[in-house]
Design a protein around this nucleic acid. Structure first.
Length: 302
RNA sequence: GCCGAAGUAGCCAAGAUGGUCACGGCACUGGUCUGAAAAACCUGGGAUGUUGGUUCGAGUCCAACCUUCGGCA
């Protein structure tokens, strides 16, 4: 077995439903590719309402006070894929975190060579973007000149590039994944006019089923600045808790944040030209892709 | 009905004494992407309530009308 089924797409397109259905028919297991569901205790807000029965891996792996990263994700996911393959079980990678999915399927992330350095970041983060630009252009002119207009104004990326330049030689590169996977990539999509109302409805539902109580529970243990609480679905309520905005406004901000997420996720997934794009607004599309996946799964070599 | 205040994009909102057809923020749009990625950053379109008047020139002054809010009745 060397097959991997990827189901990607923006939030609220029904990825999990499709994955669970396929997992049930072929006996697969799900590997989540969601940068927020890795946190324990974030349940309602991030939609951890998974049906029981199908194993879902890589959710609830770290404490919300922990800073997770794509490098950790890659290591865990590749290990899990290996385990499943050994048991002849189809791994179904499901999620909307494009970078996380990319870290599994793209050769360009064959190693995340340079570890992050909290101390260095602590200092660099205090500097204005203009100084970071200057620093990088001084340390690594080649890299600097290759930056596009978006990256060159992005302090986080500048900090990371400086970090790589300064620490590259002191770290060991871990080897690229040795396996070549047989990947079938489905990416679900829908027009914003369809997706946004669906997102809004889901937000209201989450409020109803106790999102704010969940946030209370989290706040009893964690700070607003902890990585888990920086996730937008909780973060938008910070001003509400401090009586700066009313509940209605906070809920509106949550919706807006989800809309933006969906847009960015759609943009990301457009890059996979070989992926099977499925517009979920047509039921027959889902049926036909399910069938095609079945055929792919039953091809020899597994 | 009377008095007062206000009317700038879907929402909030800047614009001393009239002078590059208008600052921003949110939303909406399209992007960027090698250890925070639902992050961070870049990009685009859209507006002076209506009708007249004064003036070389009005979002800015005047009038009427319309609408909204507050007060009085």
């Amino acid at each position: 077995m060397n097959k991997i089924l990827i189901i990607s797409g923006p939030t609220a397109t029904g990825k999990t439903d499709l994955a669970v259905k396929i997992a049930a028919t072929v006996g697969g297991e799900i590997i989540s590719a969601d940068s927020r569901q890795v946190y324990k205790g974030l349940d309602i807000g991030v939609g951890k309402d998974h049906p029981l029965g199908t194993p879902i891996h890589l959710i609830d792996v770290v404490d919300p006070s922990f800073r997770f990263s794509v490098a950790t994700y890659q290591a865990l996911a590749l290990q899990k894929i290996k385990d499943l393959h050994r048991q002849n079980i189809l791994p179904i990678v499901v999620g909307c975190s494009g970078l996380y999915i990319d870290s599994i399927i793209s050769q360009k992330y064959s190693n995340f060579g340079t570890n992050k350095n909290s101390l260095l970041r602590f200092f660099l983060e205090k500097l204005p973007t203009s100084v970071l630009k200057f620093l990088l252009s001084y340390l690594d002119k080649t890299t600097y000149q290759k930056l596009n207009n978006s990256d060159i104004n992005n302090p986080r990326r500048l900090v990371r590039k400086i970090e790589i330049k300064l620490l590259r030689n002191k770290t060991i590169n871990f080897p690229p994944p040795e396996e070549k996977f047989d990947i079938f990539h489905v990416t679900l999509t829908a027009p914003n006019a369809f997706l946004f109302p669906r997102i809004d409805k889901r937000v209201h539902k989450r409020i109803e089923i106790g999102h704010l109580q969940e946030l209370d529970t989290l706040l009893a243990k964690y700070k607003w600045t902890d990585p888990g609480l920086e996730v937008s679905c909780y973060h938008v309520f910070q001003d509400y808790y401090h009586h700066k905005i009313n509940l209605q406004k906070a809920i509106e901000l949550w919706k807006f944040a989800e809309h933006a997420d969906a847009r960015h996720q759609k943009t990301w997934f457009k890059q996979y030209h070989s992926a099977h794009v499925v517009d979920i607004t047509k039921a027959k599309n889902i049926r036909s892709i399910t069938k095609i996946i079945g055929q792919w799964y039953n091809e020899i070599n597994h």
